[in-house]
Design a protein around this nucleic acid. Structure first.
Lengths: 178, 178
DNA sequence: GCTGATTTACTCGGATACACACTGTCCGAGTTTAGTTGG
DNA sequence: CCAACTAAACTCGGACAGTGTGTATCCGAGTAAATCAGC
């Protein structure tokens, strides 16, 4: 009952992409360097986020990743489910009717109350995650972060960020400079 | 991010022990048979619950397990933490300052907001679990369960339950019949 | 018949294999850029 | 000088090992009850 390491990376990367100018992309290699992670393993996590429809990937020398939706339309719940899978935390094996000699399923018409209690807790967890959007996290960092930390992130975004001519979420950017 | 299978068994066993007359014990073998589980593996789970101080174990031919505390003093949170460990679900690796060239820890005086958000969700989860006591689960079963299911459980408790002369939680039972 | 030690059978507890998922890595397919060559 | 072609470099994506936790099992230490011998 522990989250995989990739969860932390996925959320941090998502906030980075959210802080990026609309349509721009960040390559996985740069993201790994910025966070001090293995590029090859981070790509595995990023792949999952693309498969889940949260990120978009662009190939080629100027390629990278960007958010597939607006940052206020992506929650921590989305990210967690993309990495950990959408299956339930608690899997009820109906062991209450597993013993030899136990009455059949007709004797258990309602859901196991233990199962129900665990589902309530699981729902509380995911609801709490669903309340936090990536945009909110970026906003908190902008407000609470120290000067050095913000500058460090800003420099990274400026250096590693890449304009994209083909922008699927908006029209092409007018700004073509560098 | 899934619970181990033992969680379900642990909770069901706890409710069984709670339904038992005060001080009586149930052997692990019987508990496994009633739930259709492997006795050897269930013993591993029970061992964890004893180590956590939730259950008490009695050796010998008339031995078994019983609750170490009153059923209303044991919550689902206690059981889950006993099996899964008390460590946090989300482990923050501080990757925000992991990159080469990143500013030192003094640039990050406050907790990572991502970490904080995950902690809030985790707290919501455990709070929800802490609200459910084993006694409440037994009460729900008594109220909602069907006649066949309740009778099946009652027969099991009667047949497998064992009186204990040395009762650490209360004085010896006067009832010596059967 | 009663008392006592002895034997037995049953219980829990720790130590030991097996399997799956997470972690970590490599190489290949695809695309854009830059360079080069010909007109 | 311009345009088109070619080659190269960089990106993501899928396939392939290593490791740690969870799963499953067996055997040994300890205890209460039942048995049996002796009084």
């Amino acid at each position: 009952m522990k989250h995989s390491e990739g969860i932390e990376a996925a959320i941090h990367v998502a906030t980075m992409l959210a802080a990026l100018p609309e349509g721009d992309v960040l390559p996985g290699k740069s993201l790994a360097q910025f966070h001090g992670l293995s590029p090859t393993y981070l790509s595995k996590t990023l792949k999952q986020l693309v498969a889940a429809g949260l990120f978009q990937a662009v190939s080629g020398p100027t390629g990278g990743y960007r958010l597939a939706r607006a940052a206020d339309q992506i929650t921590l719940k989305d990210v967690v489910l993309a990495i950990e899978g959408t299956g339930p935390i608690f899997r009820c094996g109906e062991i209450r009717q597993g013993g030899k000699g136990a009455p059949g399923p007709e004797a258990y018409p309602v859901i196991c109350n233990i199962h129900a209690a665990m589902l309530r807790a699981e729902r509380a967890y995911r609801d709490a995650l669903a309340e936090i959007t990536i945009e909110a996290l970026v906003g908190e960092f902008e407000k609470e972060g120290t000067g050095a930390a913000k500058e460090w992130a800003c420099v990274f975004l400026t250096e590693a960020g890449r304009k994209q001519n083909t922008n699927s979420r908006e029209g092409p950017q007018n700004d073509t400079a560098t």
